[in-house]
Amino acid sequence: MKKIVLILLLSVLSLFGGSIKWEKDYSSAIAKAKSMNKPLMFIVSNHHCHYCVQYESTTMKDPRVVQKLNSDFISSIAYIDENPIFPHQLEVPGTPGTWFLKPNGEPMFEPIMGAADAESFLKALDIVKEEFKKSTTKK
């Protein structure tokens, strides 16, 4: 009986408990990244883009991705079909485009273009986290 209750509890938590804590816009994400000294993941997306929808419904819903983003990053998404305000230098030639930025808004790498699968994205998150750690310990 305990095993059944545990399985039900884990199922409910995976359905309702795991979502990315998105900041409402680029400016508030930068402010939070600065105050918490964390890297920012910034996605340029489009509601009408098949690959954007796929990216958000698969990779960005993977519990491992959600956990890692919520603990180690500040996350923000801008939909170009909503005319968002964000720096011109973060525009991308297509969507989705995923940037990783320092807390001051400076890009750490070129953007990841397209809908990365969860395994590849997790590897990218590890690389970004390690590079961010190196850049903040150098004096």
Rank of each mutant, 00 (worst) to 15 (best):
I20D: 07
T58A: 09
P87V: 07
E56N: 14
H47V: 04
I43H: 01
S75E: 04
L15E: 07
F73R: 06
E82K: 14
I74K: 01
I43T: 12
K21S: 15
F42P: 03
L69Q: 05
A31D: 14
C52F: 02
S76D: 12
V66Q: 11
S45W: 07
G18L: 13
W22F: 11
E56A: 12
T59L: 02
G18Y: 10
T98R: 01
K32I: 03
L90D: 05
G18A: 07
H47E: 13
T98G: 06
C49D: 11
D72G: 01
G97T: 06
L90H: 11
D72T: 03
S14D: 08
R64P: 01
D25C: 08
A33Y: 02
Y51K: 04
S75L: 04
G18I: 11
K32T: 15
P39G: 04
P39N: 06
V12D: 00
G97R: 03
L15H: 08
C52P: 05
S28K: 12
I77S: 08
F73A: 07
A78Q: 06
W22L: 08
W99G: 09
A29L: 11
G94A: 15
V44M: 05
I30Q: 05
Y79G: 00
F73E: 03
S57L: 12
N46F: 02
S57F: 01
Y79F: 15
E56L: 13
G94C: 09
E23V: 05
A33I: 09
T98I: 15
S75D: 08
F73W: 07
P87T: 08
F16C: 10
H88K: 15
D81L: 11
Q54M: 13
D72R: 09
K32L: 15
D62W: 02
S45A: 14
N37I: 04
V53E: 08
V65L: 07
G18N: 12
S71V: 09
Q54C: 03
S57K: 15
R64V: 02
A31I: 05
C49Y: 04
N83E: 13
Y26V: 05
P84C: 12
W22R: 08
K24V: 15
I30C: 04
M60I: 07
G17P: 14
H47C: 04
P63Y: 01
T98H: 05
I43Y: 01
H47S: 13
Y79S: 09
T95Y: 06
I74L: 05
N46E: 12
P87D: 06
I43S: 12
H48D: 14
F86W: 10
K38W: 05
V65N: 04
G18V: 13
Y55K: 06
F42A: 14
M41W: 01
N46L: 03
I74D: 02
V12C: 11
S28H: 09
H50Y: 11
L10Q: 10
N46M: 00
N37A: 12
K61G: 09
N37Y: 00
R64E: 15
I77D: 04
D62C: 08
I77R: 15
